[in-house]
């Protein structure tokens, strides 16, 4: 289990990770979803002690990463498949890790076989590896110590469709045996097919989290009115959660976490006339993610 509590990381005036809190449960695949630059990698680096947090904590099975006596046996980490000495062979990289963890040498062959790197490929220097082969080697390194927790940053990058399928099955099997899997992606559809739980992050903040089923279902109600701020106040006063929605292209729409009937009642009691009231049709997650992505793309276009 991975527990992240109020984690924040700033770079000067810029907040890369902004007060995020979530838990990745054992026996489940948790998808960490967010557009490029959202803060996924920074969060993962903080979890494994490569980047110091500005504030907040991250624990693995209740322990700080740096307190794990032999971390490789408890947490498998793949942050960047290209971050290896280009002059070492794939087999040598695994051997170095195997020795550091104090594992039997045959473990290296088992892992090479598991990730389908042939002896010939394993004997080549990593400089000559494709990104897909590096990902496989990285996954082999992460699995080497048979850890109960996996932290993988965009592991599907560079894999071919068969490779993505293979990894999905591998991680599924891992979680089904009680392992904790946290993997990040910037592609909703890639993570939708594998994750049980989702944590969605944008510009350093968590914008949604829950089980995949919940998030896909809980789209709530879409309501339009000429006095959106007053309706929002009334809905919030009734204990409902309200977010502005851009689906309609205007600023007069709200998405409410309740069914249309309840929203109508609140509006009537507040004496607010509605322009539109309907169920928001499972589009919540996709819409939200598109918005997040569009935000960062807009910034990119300006820069």
């Amino acid at each position: 289990m991975i527990t992240v509590a109020s984690l924040t990381r700033t770079y000067g005036a810029f907040t890369a990770v902004d007060d995020i809190t979530f838990t990745a449960e054992a026996g489940r695949v948790t998808g960490f979803l967010g557009p490029n630059g959202a803060g996924k990698s920074t969060t993962m680096r903080i979890m494994v002690g490569l980047t110091p947090a500005t504030s907040g904590t991250a624990h693995i099975n209740g322990q700080r990463f740096s307190d794990l006596p032999n971390p490789g046996l408890e947490v498998g980490v793949l942050l960047d498949a290209s971050a290896q000495h280009a002059g070492r062979t794939g087999r040598e990289i695994l051997t170095v890790a195997q020795r550091m963890m104090g594992l039997p040498a045959r473990r290296v062959d088992e892992m090479l076989e598991l990730v389908s790197l042939t002896p010939d490929e394993a004997g080549r220097r990593v400089r000559h590896y494709s990104l897909g082969m590096r990902q496989r080697l990285g996954i082999a390194t992460a699995l080497l110590g048979d850890p109960g927790v996996l932290i993988l940053d965009e592991p599907a990058n560079g894999l071919d469709p068969a490779g993505i399928r293979w990894m999905r099955d591998l991680l599924r099997g891992y979680a089904d045996q009680g392992g904790t899997v946290l993997l990040s992606s910037h592609l909703l559809h890639e993570i939708e097919v594998i994750a049980d739980d989702l944590v969605v992050i944008g510009q350093g903040r968590i914008v949604a989290q829950g089980t995949k089923a919940e998030l896909l279902r809980a789209a709530g109600t879409l309501v339009r009115t000429h006095d959106a701020p007053r309706l929002a106040t009334a809905l919030t006063a009734s204990g409902l959660s309200v977010v502005p929605s851009t689906t309609t292209g205007g600023t007069d729409a709200l998405r409410v976490d309740a069914d249309p009937e309840l929203v109508g009642k609140v509006a009537q009691q507040a004496g607010i006339a509605l322009a539109e009231l309907r169920a928001a049709d499972g589009a919540g997650l996709e819409e939200m993610f598109l918005e997040l992505t569009a935000d960062t793309q807009r910034e990119g276009a300006v820069a």
Partner: peptide, 24 residues
């Protein structure tokens, strides 16, 4: 490179591992 032939769970099965003790 061949793919997808192995049982997905092979990473976690059966390997007896040393109880975590600090790395000397």
């Amino acid at each position: 490179m061949t793919t997808t032939t192995l049982a997905p769970a092979a990473g976690r099965t059966g390997t007896p591992k040393p109880a975590p003790s600090p790395i000397p």
